[in-house]
Structures are given as C-alpha cells and as structure tokens.
C-alpha cells in the first residue's frame, strides 16, 4: 500500500497492524545477575527483537518502496533507538523498573552489576518517566517509533535518479507519519491550543532517546571489546555498522 493513498487514520491503523510481537527471553538466568549473565540476557533479547524489527519496518506503508540502500541505512542508524522506545513503552506503567521483556524486568539498582550501564538505565528511566507524565498514548507511541526509523539518517545527496526518487518518497513518508501523529493528538480531546504544545513535548523527547542510544551503542561496543559478552549474528552486523561509520 502506498502512503499517498492513505489518510492519517488509515496510516495509523497500518502502524497498529505492523506492531511486532512481545519477545520473550525464555532462558532467564538465576539471580543475582553477574555482569556477563546480564549482558548475555540483554544481547540475546536484542538479537531476537531485531529480527522482528525488520518485519515491522517492512509493514510500514511505503517503507519497502524506498531503495534497498535507504532501507538498510535507516535500519542500521535507528535500531537501538527503536529497541529503547519499545522498552520505554513497556516500562511506562512501572516506575523505577525497565521491562526488557515480560520475563525480564529489571530494577534500576540491578544495573549496578554491569560497569557503565547504570547511567544508561537512569537515562531510560528519566525519559520513560517524562512519557508517563505526558500520559503517552499507544497510537502516539506507534507514530513516534515510526518517526525514529524514518528520521534516523540524513543521507548524502545522490545524483542517481533511483536514489533521489527514494529520498523524495522518504520525505513524503515522514510527512505522512507527522500527519498521523497530529491526527492522533487532535483526536485525544485536549483543547486545540494545547495540541501543538503536546506535539512539541513528544518530539523533544526523541532527542533524549537518540542520546541514550548513542550511549548504549558505546557501552555495547566496550562490552564486546572487553569480551564481557560475545555478540553474534544480526546484532553484530548492526553494531559493526556503527563502528565502521565512526572510524
């Protein structure tokens, strides 16, 4: 389905249908965690979620119409932000806890067992707490998550016709998801004057999600380099993409 033919209501319905399933860790390590066992649980979960994330992106109307190059660039740029946004949504009703999965809920203090992770847990808890204050709604969350994907990378300019066509489609898609979010807010029943303030409040939080993901990426890379945890498969590919870009 092309987004050009979709109104905001239909677009948001597609986002609801695109939602990935809740991923279970299945093999919860015994407590207390060690640095290695916690990192192993978190990376195992991330690897499983990444596979579903690709399925989710493909179901966003218009995403597969972008060039394969753009699809890859967007996903490799945003994957940790998208994982973190999902984590925040799952944790929104549980102050002080991070619900990584239905079978992996961590208290803030459990982060103390992994060097450097407490700072990231605190960033995630603070942003989640702000979403809670704003009473983030499920459909707003879906629009924000799609925005993270579509706004994740500023591409270099290409002369190739195919690529400029793809970036035109991408800008159109971003406008569609923005219209979707505006539509969701307008249907929430808040007074018209407060709607633009709410939109701004929600969008401002995305810079905090991006900041947390940079910190998370640095942390995961250092854990991998110190051999605290082995990183395999899709997660390794996605992590390497960031490493190569920084180099």
């Amino acid at each position: 389905v092309l987004p050009a033919s979709l109104g905001p209501e239909q677009f948001v319905l597609c986002l609801i249908e695109a939602e990935p399933p809740n991923v279970l860790l299945m093999s919860r390590p015994s407590k207390p965690f060690t640095e290695a066992s916690m990192m192993m649980s978190l990376t195992k979960l991330a690897d499983k979620e990444l596979v579903h994330m690709i399925g989710w992106a493909k179901k966003i109307p218009g995403f597969v119409e972008l060039s394969l190059y753009d699809q890859v660039r967007l996903l490799e740029s945003c994957w940790l932000e998208v994982l973190m946004m999902g984590l925040m949504w799952r944790s929104i009703d549980y102050p002080g806890k991070l619900i990584f999965a239905p079978d992996l809920a961590l208290d803030r203090d459990e982060g103390k067992c992994v060097e450097g992770i407490l700072e990231i847990f605190d960033m995630l808890l603070a942003t989640t707490s702000r979403f809670r204050e704003l009473k983030l709604q499920h459909r707003e969350y879906l629009c924000l998550k799609a925005m993270i994907l579509l706004n994740s990378s500023m591409f270099p300019f290409f002369n190739a016709v195919e690529e400029s066509d793809s970036s035109r489609k991408l800008h159109h898609l971003l406008n569609t998801v923005t219209d979707g979010l505006i539509w969701v807010i307008s249907k929430s029943g808040i007074p018209f004057r407060q709607q633009s303030t709410r939109l701004a409040n929600l969008l401002m939080l995305l810079s905090h999600v991006r900041h947390a993901s940079y910190k998370g990426m640095e942390h995961l890379l250092s854990m991998k380099c110190k051999n605290v945890v082995p990183v395999y498969d899709l997660l390794l590919e996605m992590l390497n993409a960031h490493t190569l870009r920084e180099q």
């Binding site: 690709i54 890859v72 996903l75 590919e237 993409a241």
Partner: peptide
C-alpha cells in the same frame, strides 16, 4: 565495505519473507 557486504543478514531479511520464515 559496501552495505551489502556488511549487512548480509539484514539484506536477506529485507529481501526475503517474514521474520517467522527466518527464525
């Protein structure tokens, strides 16, 4: 390295079937 080289799994998942087919 090219995008294809560094994203073998991602490319496959983008071009092939649903996640349930892969896992």
């Amino acid at each position: 390295s090219s995008l294809t080289e560094r994203h073998k799994i991602l490319h496959r998942l983008l071009q092939e079937g649903s996640p349930s087919d892969i896992s």
